[in-house]
Amino acid sequence: MKHAWLPALALLLTGTVPAQASADMTGKEVFERHCVYCHAPGNEHPGTRQLGLTRGEDKAVLAERDDLAVEYVQYVVRHGLQSMPGFYPSDLTDAQLEALAEFLSQHRALTP
């Protein structure tokens, strides 16, 4: 059994590992990469908490909202809202933003 505090068998990782997301991410993947840290369910997530306080608990969890329009999501992601800063197009591209906005608005699209 390996003692956790001892250095494990020497493991040398070399070579480039891109941390960046690929250009063809799905909206859900974009959400999970960029948004969940603030917008996952639970009061430990500042975005969820802020939305609950300002819009009501029924609108706190972003991925469960049924009132988000594509254009609105695109605007907020680039310009920010309250304490949320805008996201850079270098980090979250227009194509990824489009996929994200479609993902977040899908409940709305399903609503008659």
């Binding site: 494990a8 493991l11 990782l13 070579g15 480039t16 590992v17 891109p18 941390a19 960046q20 270098s90």
Partner: peptide
């Protein structure tokens, strides 16, 4: 000069 795209983890050395 936005360096967000330069986001490679070039090496992680456990030893």
């Amino acid at each position: 000069l936005d360096l967000n795209r330069m986001n490679r983890i070039l090496e992680v050395n456990e030893q």
